Amino acid sequence: MSIIKKDRILSVDDTKDNLILVKTILESEGYDIDSVSNGQAALEKVVELPPDLIILDVMMPGINGYEVTRRIRNNPEINYIPILLLTAFHESSVVEGLDAGADDFIRKPFDTEELLARVRSLLRLKHSIDEQEKMTRQREDFVSRLTHDLRTPLVAADRMLNFFLQEIFCQISPEMKQAINVMIRSNQNLLDMVNTLLEVYRFEAGKKNLNYESCNLITIASEVVSELTPLALEKNLVLKLDTHQLSPTGNNTGIVNGDRLELRRVLNNLIGNAIKFTDTGSIEIRILETSSPHHPSEVIIEVQDTGYGIAPEDQGTIFERFRQGRNKRSGSGLGLHLSQYIMEAHGGKIELSSALGKGSTFTLRLPKKT
């Protein structure tokens, strides 16, 4: 048999009769009531045993209700608690109370039914927010466990497939090697998707730590282009890096403050996508800088392809999570979503320009390190 938890309400008032009245009314409705007579005691009680709702008198000696509200709202260690401000003075500022972080306001002498209605309303709000936070924690836990549990067998399977390909156990036919190579590629694609999902989860949960340092985007782009050139050659595509618009003698040319691995991930994703969705023509990566006395200097990277292009109706949602393109080669819809997170974390942005049949250009803008 499950036990129904009673809502706990903290009543704060420097007048004893008021505390007794509020306690009597609310206990008759089945609520658990804690009562304190000043603001300092209220702050200590909230930390010691957080209530589900606070009914807080505004005019109290020492710390008044406005200040108590502000301190509660400014304490990151206190989860959300609805606050109902209670006052006998008509000149008390509703605006000040709401700006301090209160959720509702009622004047004394109050009508019992109105008080109970406001209490029920704020408790519904509290329960709704608590349920949303619970679902968020469950989702985060699920994603974390799922990605971890998936990665382990995928890595093991990849290792075993490579053993077969190296003929460690026995000799295999060329046809079997070809089939194993297909399995290895599929397995790697799935592992990449799991890793990307884990990175997206870390960003969304605020658990992603970036290691900022001076990064040379020219060097990073050159490395990615060098690694992906064999894929482009397999499709007879021209893959080139253009840096001629950069000043050869400029100070800190192409230098930004960022996480090298994450910026590399963005470029690898954009250039890899360009190769994937281009059958003929070329992929060009251009690096340039902007400089203006009125605007911060930026390092700009453009990744332009001659591929299929993206339909206008898809361009507005292309960076959303799990938003797959209509092309049959589209992946999980996580790569661009993650890339946008990474760019925003670096104070930059990612933009798209595309036309069907004419290719696409993804533009990265990052603040230049001064």
Rank of each mutant, 00 (worst) to 15 (best):
S2E: 07
I4V: 14
D7F: 01
D13A: 03
T15Q: 14
K16Q: 11
T24R: 10
I25Q: 02
I33E: 01
S35W: 06
G39L: 07
A42W: 02
L43H: 01
I54R: 02
L56P: 06
D57A: 13
M59K: 07
P61S: 14
G62Q: 09
I63T: 09
N64Q: 02
Y66S: 02
V68N: 11
V68E: 12
T69N: 12
T69S: 15
R73H: 09
I78E: 04
I78H: 08
P82N: 04
P82C: 08
L85M: 08
F89S: 15
E91N: 06
S93Y: 01
V95A: 09
E96M: 15
A100I: 10
G101D: 00
D104Y: 07
F105H: 15
I106K: 15
R107H: 14
R107A: 15
K108I: 05
P109M: 15
F110M: 12
T112W: 04
E114A: 11
L115Y: 07
L115W: 09
L116G: 00
R118A: 00
L123Y: 01
L125G: 03
I129Q: 14
E131V: 08
Q138N: 00
Q138D: 13
Q138A: 06
V143F: 09
L146T: 10
T147M: 02
P153N: 04
A156E: 07
N162C: 02
Q166K: 15
E167I: 01
F169A: 00
F169S: 01
C170W: 00
I172Q: 00
S173Y: 00
S173A: 10
E175W: 05
K177Y: 03
A179S: 13
I180D: 08
N181Y: 08
S186T: 13
M193W: 06
T196F: 00
E199K: 08
R202S: 03
K207G: 08
Y212T: 11
S214T: 01
S214E: 02
C215H: 03
I218W: 02
A221H: 10
V224I: 14
V224E: 11
V225C: 15
S226Q: 13
L228R: 09
L231Q: 14
K235R: 12
K235F: 10
V238G: 00
D242L: 02
L246R: 15
S247L: 14
G250K: 15
N251P: 13
I255F: 05
D259E: 13
D259W: 04
E262M: 14
R264A: 04
V266H: 13
V266Y: 14
L267H: 00
I271A: 13
A274N: 05
K276A: 08
D279H: 04
E284I: 05
I287T: 01
T290D: 05
P293M: 13
H294G: 03
H295N: 09
P296G: 03
V299D: 07
V299C: 04
V303N: 09
V303P: 06
G307A: 03
I310S: 11
G316R: 03
I318Y: 00
G325F: 10
N327K: 08
N327T: 14
G331C: 07
S332N: 03
G335H: 07
I342Y: 09
I342D: 03
E351N: 12
L352A: 10
S360K: 08
K369C: 10
